[in-house]
Design a protein around this nucleic acid. Structure first.
Lengths: 331, 331
DNA sequence: ATGAAAGCGCTAACAT
DNA sequence: ATGTTAGCGCTTTCAT
């Protein structure tokens, strides 16, 4: 050491009070001179904190040919935005998320074990399918955790979410305003709260506009399901002139089918998506869509988790973001 | 403890030889009974290994409004496949990658510091832009690292890659076989080795077929640049009847422009992409494309890194994968 | 083949 | 305000 005891150095590094400014100075210079870096392992051995947090993506992907898992999670550009938001928040803090995929029961147990072992201090969880037991497992294990969306069953766990119903209302207002009279919707999987909310919000808003019933075909958030749903809609409701689709990927599929059927968008049929993902600008006509501030939501999720790790006893909270209408060509 | 000393328990857990089978049995039972899990921090304090490895995505994204960074990395479905392959390989080993984005010099330094501090034992690096200094920084710092693609400058570092030239040749052969006579290509950024290889490989293969010169417009791997490039190609070479596009995202853009111009694909103009990403099936007509076995490559990258961490003194190596032609509708 | 003991680098009482 | 001391939980020589 260059002058003082290790304890003092420790205090300087961790910014504990009660250190002579002069000595602080000396210590900092010594640190800079020697290129000293604190050993993370030793530190976390005593503090019981690792400084790492997990980003868990749960419930998407399928068993691969090699027994491994080929995840389809990341084909939805939505996840890229989540990652982006999380990293954007964490990086200035010198933190980086540990990425974990949890599609199978085995993988979920592994996640829980990993967290319990103290490899990470907490978890952010973005779950795509209904009935995901992971949030429950995590709370049960006493692991600090925050979800990206409201859990489908009430669980004492914090989360961020978007006001899906408000978003759906924006879409309904827009379609009606455009003069659509024969409106339908393509929903996401109806066991997912987000899908339910978007559907109910849309139906309610349409009802207020004097359209008591809105037909709905259920999709699964993939482009292919959007195509299939649009085909059905066209068959069952040939005079359709407006569609609210629960995400952009499905909307993209719907657009393809409409074109195949010679329907012009937006002249013959107006289409509104949800998410404002990169898919929205990747198709022709570009999608009018409901924007979720995903990056901000993800950043908030990270912030909440850090909060929770620092003050574990606090009550669970939720933060709901407002969506907005992004007008492009499709409606 | 249930019977023996900690040293013995340690030996059992770490599979060191010279332990009485009977005692092994006893110890395992005790472990199971007590639900004991070894403390990672304590272990890595003495072993100097953390058991964590970093997945670094370098060189994409732009400074965001809040001073953070809004990465556009993940809009290319390519990255999802890399993540998928890496996780698929790592998970059975109980390992999970730490995700790091490194677009700015500051972020790169942070990555290096993180690794040097021993927060992770090594890094996998997928770099998208030319002249990335990170591979050099990593080797210099003595951090075990493996790249996803050949570095643009020769550096003593291991990597996996695909035989770009072979892929380009597959495309050339296909286009010629279809009877295309007026062929052009849309390349990626020409300072990236992969782009160069795809271009040179394509030109060489076309030359062998008796087409001495192939016009080329440079893109940047985004859909928008693909659109712009296709516009130019159509203007400069109106009789064009075949295009090889250096990735699927740009090919998707080219498809849109061709449609806008009333050219039928593949009847009037045949289009071949590269990657076989999810974009290939997301457009109409679905893209005929050159498939990179990205997941396998990513898994191999992870394997190589683990190898290197275990045996640091070994020589650097490279593993090159063969691409394949995936025939869909566009050519 | 097993146990005893030292120590990895740090933080946090406690003492001064 | 600073130094002293005692561990955190594990692996690993070194004895036996």
């Amino acid at each position: 050491m260059a002058g003082v005891s290790r304890a003092t150095v420790s205090r300087v590094i961790n910014g504990t009070r009660n250190v002579d400014p002069l000595i602080q100075q000396t210590v900092r210079e010594a640190i800079a001179a020697t290129g000293y870096v604190p050993n993370t392992a030793a530190r976390s051995l005593v503090t019981r904190r690792t400084g790492a947090i997990a980003l868990v993506v749960s419930g998407a992907g399928s068993p691969g040919p090699d027994g491994g898992v080929r995840s389809e999670v990341f084909v939805d550009p939505f996840f890229g935005r989540v990652v982006s938001g999380v990293v954007g928040f964490l990086r200035p803090l010198g933190m980086h998320p540990v990425l974990m995929l949890a599609e199978t029961a085995e993988a979920r147990d592994q996640v829980v074990a990993y967290l319990r072992q103290g490899n990470a201090d907490g978890a952010m969880l973005v779950s795509t399918h209904a009935g995901d037991p992971l949030p429950g497992q995590l709370t049960e294990a006493g692991v600090p955790a925050v979800l990206f969306a409201r859990p489908d069953r009430p669980i004492p766990i914090s989360y961020v979410d978007v006001a899906h119903q408000d978003g759906a209302k924006l879409a309904a207002d827009r379609l009606v305003e455009r003069g659509c009279r024969d409106v339908a919707t393509i929903s996401g999987p109806l066991d997912v709260p987000a899908s339910q909310d978007r559907l109910s919000g849309f139906r309610e808003a349409m009802a207020r506009h004097g359209f008591p019933y809105v037909p709905c075909v259920e999709g699964d958030f993939t482009q292919g399901s959007g195509e299939a749903a649009m085909e059905r809609l066209l068959a069952e409701q040939p005079r359709i002139d407006g569609v609210f689709v629960a995400n952009d990927l499905m909307a993209q599929g719907a657009l393809l089918v409409l074109r195949d059927h010679g329907r012009r968008v937006p002249e013959d049929v107006a289409v509104i998506g949800f998410d404002d993902s990169s898919a929205a600008t990747a198709c022709r006509p570009a999608l009018t869509t409901i924007r979720q501030p995903v990056e901000d939501m993800a950043a908030e999720m990270a912030r909440m988790l850090l909060d929770r790790i620092q003050t574990p006893q606090q009550r669970v909270t939720s933060v709901i973001f407002e969506p907005s209408l992004v007008v492009r060509q499709s409606a």
